[in-house]
């Protein structure tokens, strides 16, 4: 659906510049209007310094995640979108499981897209705030460097915060 009008646009208005972003993980390619892609400061710097060829390779970001990033950029490049529309659209983009959100926040950080970084971090915070710390440790892949006694001591300092948690 999305690609059809884009092709049309390219045919009728060839002066409109596009960039091709290519995920280096699964080689998926995305053709994007330049002004949409330039919301990424990383891509903007590449284009400004003439480092960008016809195809911009994006390392470490999968096609699935890149599609979400491009959806975000498209929404925010639309000058007629109201603040309310954007909020709803953002909420839709980050309505994902925690592991997808972690990939997305890394992508937003790498591509330097401030707004996306902000909404994704907020969503991650909302998703983990009521989880036991053991689950948070697992999700973030953090190694537990406490001895059981040390952990118990830290916990005892604020026992009230652990009420109802394992």
């Amino acid at each position: 659906m999305a690609s059809a009008p884009e092709n049309e646009k390219n045919a009728s208005a060839p002066e409109k510049k596009t960039l091709t972003l290519k995920s280096m993980i699964n080689n998926e390619e995305f053709v994007v209007d330049e002004h949409v892609a330039l919301q990424s400061v990383t891509i903007k710097n590449m284009v400004d310094s003439d480092c960008a060829g016809d195809v911009i390779p994006v390392p470490t970001i999968s096609g699935e995640i890149l599609a979400l990033v491009i959806e975000y950029c498209k929404n925010h490049a639309n000058p007629s979108a109201s603040e309310d529309d954007l909020k709803k659209a953002d909420a839709g983009i980050v309505a994902k499981d925690i592991y997808t959100l972690i990939d997305l926040v890394l992508a937003a950080n790498f591509l330097d897209i401030k707004g996306l970084l902000e909404v994704t971090s907020q969503k991650i915070a909302d998703s983990i705030k009521d989880l036991p710390h053991q689950d948070v440790r697992e999700i973030f892949g953090v190694e537990n460097d406490y001895t059981p006694e040390e952990e118990a001591a830290v916990r005892a300092e604020h026992d009230w915060a652990f009420e109802g948690f394992p």
């Binding site: 036991p132 710390h133 440790r137 973030f140 953090v142 537990n144 915060a161």
Partner: peptide, 13 residues
Amino acid sequence: LSIDSLLRFRCVS
């Protein structure tokens, strides 16, 4: 995060 989550997450590492 709010303070009660933060106090618990001090136990992460």
